[in-house]
């Protein structure tokens, strides 16, 4: 019973937060909805024994990424009105139609299989907690090559962000 509560409370918060993200008008509210979703997801990760990932989720997503989003909202301004006219006639209607068809297909498959998706293996009994030690053991032995590539990617992304955000014209006129 507690287990079900630990699933449903964060799950409802996740869905409410996601709906805030897509329907709120003020970008700051959207960002706060995203924070709600991310923090609730971290709770779900803890219930799924992924402690390290939950902490990283809080630090990287709910911390760093959201701060970056808020900074950009600050630079761009929150009072800009979003234009709502369609550039292609009826594009919102068309997209909703296509999406409804896809979702009803998914729902049909889920309901007709009685929500018991074929997962090939039954769940294992033993479950290790995803501590930093366990993650690092896999990360630095089996996954060392992807890890190196990821570090390269981060350096490239940092350099690219600086190059993109650097306002050459303004800098030259100031000098």
């Amino acid at each position: 019973m507690v287990e079900a509560l630990l699933f449903f409370a964060p799950a409802s918060l996740i869905i409410i937060g996601a709906l805030i993200v897509i329907f709120a008008k003020n970008p700051v509210h959207n960002a706060m909805g995203l924070v709600m979703t991310l923090v609730s997801l971290a709770i779900i990760y803890i219930t799924l024994n992924a402690t390290f990932v939950a902490m990283v989720q809080m630090l990287v997503y709910a911390g760093a990424v959201m701060t970056l989003f808020l900074f950009v909202i600050m630079m761009i301004g929150v009072d800009k009105k979003e234009q709502t006219t369609d550039s292609i006639k009826g594009q919102t209607f068309l997209v909703s139609g296509v999406f409804l068809i896809l979702i009803s297909l998914l729902a049909y498959v889920a309901i007709s299989s009685d929500f018991k998706w074929d997962l090939w293996f039954p769940p294992v009994e033993f479950d290790a907690e995803g501590t930093p030690q366990l993650i690092a053991g896999a990360l630095f032995t089996e996954w060392i090559f992807p890890f190196e590539i990821i570090s390269l990617l981060l350096i490239v992304a940092t350099a690219a962000a600086i190059a993109l955000a650097y306002d050459t014209k303004k800098r030259n006129s100031n000098a």
């Binding site: 799924l48 024994n49 992924a50 390290f52 990932v53 990283v56 989720q57 990287v60 997503y61 997962l119 293996f121 769940p123 294992v124 033993f126 479950d127 290790a128 995803g130 366990l134 993650i135 053991g137 896999a138 990360l139 089996e142 996954w143 992807p146 990821i150």
Partner: peptide, 16 residues
């Protein structure tokens, strides 16, 4: 969690 393997969590780390 379902398969009792840590690889999924490592992959989430990469996705992050």
């Amino acid at each position: 969690k379902h398969f009792g393997q840590v690889d999924g969590q490592v992959f989430v780390f990469f996705v992050l």
